[in-house]
Amino acid sequence: MYDKVVQSAEYIKNRLKLSPEIAIVLGSGLGDLVDSLTETEIINYEDIPHFPQSTVAGHAGRLVIGKLKGKSVLIMQGRFHFFEGYSMKEVTYPVFVMKLLGISNLILTNACGGIKESFSPGTLMLIEDFINLMPSNPLIGVNDERFGPRFPDMTEPYNLELLQVARNAAEKLSIPYGEGVYAGFQGPYYETAAEIRMIRNHGADAVGMSTVPETIAANYLGMKVLGIACITNMATGIQKVKHSHERVIEIAKKASSDLSLLINAVVEEMK
């Protein structure tokens, strides 16, 4: 895998004028941030050697590189999910590439279901911790010490300094937000009411089908992670109507402007 990651990273480096220092992964329908960039360069996933391809609606499938608040950033407009049939190493492959590009800060966003009843569709939740409910993770298998240690620490999966930067930015901008624990569920179906009761009892405040694998990989690689979840629907048994991906995308697009403002402010304060 290491040689493939090197080839992917070299291809991207050779296409870029900028050297990105921050990476941002955009979840379903959360694309407004791209409009904030200047000096924009675009690379389609299909052009990058060994890179997976997005198959989910609302994921554009391209890297967008540019300047944001004076800093060079790389935005993944579209991520990969375990439920698409990819292995966990394929799901997190871009994070490994980011590391070899010299990126040390990663902002992960997603569209997810709210369990905490003080949340409502459109709430932005700063992720404090995660629960992995998926049947695998990206570190299983032979470890390559060139990437990271066999047993990485997960004491602080979401960097406490970045969390405080995000809190300060949200309060300064008067953007309503919550905080909580994100549970990563395999999918690709919306959870049952019984599963939500179980997940809630385990301490989760929100549930979705992404983010956890990338968080694990990034911590393993020594990167600092900030997670921001957009609550696009309330979970089964709490929400009174049936779920639909179209409604998720609709709510995410409405919340995308607040998310864009928040990330702009966070990036400005990043060191």
Results as ranks from 00 to 15, higher is better:
residue 218 A to F: 05
residue 226 L to W: 08
residue 219 N to L: 00
residue 242 K to W: 06
residue 256 S to Q: 08
residue 187 G to P: 00
residue 236 T to C: 10
residue 259 L to P: 06
residue 187 G to S: 09
residue 190 Y to A: 09
residue 229 A to F: 06
residue 198 M to Y: 13
residue 211 T to W: 03
residue 168 N to M: 11
residue 178 G to C: 09
residue 193 A to W: 09
residue 208 G to V: 07
residue 161 E to M: 09
residue 255 A to H: 04
residue 224 K to Q: 13
residue 189 Y to H: 12
residue 166 A to V: 03
residue 182 Y to C: 00
residue 230 C to K: 00
residue 201 N to D: 14
residue 248 V to N: 02
residue 163 L to R: 15
residue 256 S to K: 08
residue 177 Y to H: 12
residue 169 A to P: 03
residue 170 A to E: 01
residue 248 V to A: 09
residue 214 E to V: 02
residue 247 R to T: 14
residue 202 H to E: 05
residue 216 I to S: 02
residue 198 M to W: 15
residue 201 N to M: 13
residue 256 S to W: 07
residue 259 L to M: 13
residue 233 N to M: 08
residue 237 G to P: 03
residue 159 N to Q: 10
residue 176 P to F: 05
residue 251 I to Y: 08
residue 162 L to M: 15
residue 157 P to W: 13
residue 219 N to K: 12
residue 180 G to F: 07
residue 245 H to Q: 08
residue 185 F to L: 12
residue 231 I to V: 15
residue 208 G to Q: 08
residue 259 L to F: 12
residue 184 G to Y: 00
residue 173 L to H: 02
residue 215 T to I: 05
residue 176 P to V: 09
residue 211 T to D: 07
residue 200 R to P: 04
residue 223 M to Q: 10
residue 184 G to S: 03
residue 257 S to G: 05
residue 201 N to R: 14
residue 191 E to W: 08
residue 225 V to C: 03
residue 200 R to T: 05
residue 185 F to K: 06
residue 172 K to Y: 15
residue 228 I to W: 07
residue 250 E to L: 10
residue 164 Q to E: 15
residue 172 K to C: 05
residue 161 E to K: 14
residue 207 V to E: 03
residue 248 V to K: 02
residue 199 I to Q: 04
residue 219 N to M: 11
residue 166 A to Q: 06
residue 172 K to D: 15
residue 177 Y to S: 04
residue 169 A to Y: 02
residue 185 F to N: 00
residue 180 G to Q: 10
residue 168 N to A: 12
residue 207 V to K: 00
residue 176 P to N: 12
residue 181 V to E: 10
residue 161 E to Q: 13
residue 189 Y to P: 01
residue 200 R to L: 05
residue 215 T to C: 12
residue 230 C to L: 11
residue 251 I to P: 00
residue 202 H to K: 09
residue 186 Q to Y: 10
residue 209 M to L: 12
residue 218 A to H: 04
residue 210 S to M: 04
residue 170 A to I: 11
residue 182 Y to I: 04
residue 157 P to Y: 07
residue 212 V to N: 00
residue 251 I to S: 03
residue 182 Y to T: 05
residue 166 A to Y: 01
residue 225 V to R: 02
residue 242 K to H: 13
residue 201 N to K: 15
residue 240 K to Y: 01
residue 187 G to W: 07
